[in-house]
Amino acid sequence: MNMDRRQFVLTSAAAFAALSVNAVPAFAANGATADDRIKEFTGGAEIAEGRVTLNTPEIAENGNTVPISVEVDSPMTDDNYVQSIMVVADGNPNPEVVTFNFTTMSGVAAAKTRIRLAKTQNVIAVAKLSDGSFQMAKNEVKVTIGGCGG
């Protein structure tokens, strides 16, 4: 990150402020949006909501390492299971984050990892089920730029 741009201001009456700073240097981007990736993943099919649980912090203490977990309510049997869950972030230079692929041996369709978020944005999880249907969940994560670093 560009340390030089950081203005360091300490006021004795500073109250908590969640800041989202949009002044980021030009990123190398592949041009796709989160919506593009979702359309690719679903082939344009309708996406329902309600079965995907996406856990993200409300405020990420540092955008470099944001813990997320995702789970889909599913019996994970041979005729009824979750094939994959794709996670995208709509404010990152490139939207794709990770795609988890499950099998019936997974037992539960659940996974956790840690991700990078460049700024405050939505994290979206889209699940593909064995019956060809899709489910999603979307959370906003506030990403702050801290006051002190090194």
């Binding site: 990770v98 795609t99 988890f100 499950f102 990892t113």
Partner: peptide, 17 residues
């Protein structure tokens, strides 16, 4: 289980499943 990982996954990648 498998994961297709993109650069937005943090360093020292952690996977729990």
């Amino acid at each position: 289980f498998s994961a297709d990982i993109d650069p937005a996954v943090s360093s020292n990648p952690y996977m729990e499943f």
